[in-house]
Write a protein that binds this DNA or RNA. Sequence first.
DNA 1: TATTGTTATACTCTATAACTATA
DNA 2: TATAGTTATAGAGTATAACAATA
Lengths: 137, 137
Amino acid sequence: MTEPGPDEVMDRLVQVSFTVMALLSRAAAAHDLSLTQLRALAILRDRTPKMAELADYLGLDRSSVTGLIDRAVKRGLVRREASDDDGRAVRVDLTAQAHRLAGELGAEIAELLAPLTRDLTPAERNRLGVLLGRMLP
Amino acid sequence: MTEPGPDEVMDRLVQVSFTVMALLSRAAAAHDLSLTQLRALAILRDRTPKMAELADYLGLDRSSVTGLIDRAVKRGLVRREASDDDGRAVRVDLTAQAHRLAGELGAEIAELLAPLTRDLTPAERNRLGVLLGRMLP
DNA sequence: TATTGTTATACTCTATAACTATA
DNA sequence: TATAGTTATAGAGTATAACAATA
């Protein structure tokens, strides 16, 4: 049978990851969003972080997030709001339109990714989920 | 125990994929390479494709690859060579320096990714590899 | 003084459209 | 005519350095 060595496992993980990213990019592009904007959308679905916190979530410099949010504001996806506790800070909040868009995107992404596990049985899909869960913090 | 539903499995797959991409980006950045340049390097390790073929591998427009290869040439990573069979075509060839770099990067990436499966037993790692293999074409 | 966010600047990545040289 | 590659152009994404406002 297929007996993957340790490096082979990592190779496959990288291959699958690139495939996933390509599919996510395609889903985002269908709504004229970049992968980064898609990530921001996902993060902001259940958070209203300050700019610096959002930068941390995304692993980007604050100055990069300024431009990202500038463009998102221009498209009506987010609002900048003053922070109550800190006069310097700015909170980022998703608009209702963006919440709807995020919902649609979630469904579309689920559909796009589904074929990936097409050849796995439900039990195997389950085992995959468990193993992946053990790889996350 | 952890019984992931179908959407949960996909969520974890996306999470792990983002983690993998972040680690790959970090490995590339340590050598002042972008993720795209890293991909190109990996592809060119065992191929000498024409520009159009490389564009296909990368899923990019030909014009994008022109710039990518321009920058790689400037850094001494690749050479452009005339194609024997087609006077219009250009073959892209990795330099010896780039081959060495690719080797180093491979080892560094293996080290960076290893912690991901730290909590899996060898048998589990194996099963993960098999499942991932079934998700690839 | 330190932190938050922005601006200015520069580079990479990417696509579209127009062009050239060859087929 | 069609294809391979480049150029010109435009916009997104990203980081570094310098800055203003607030803590």
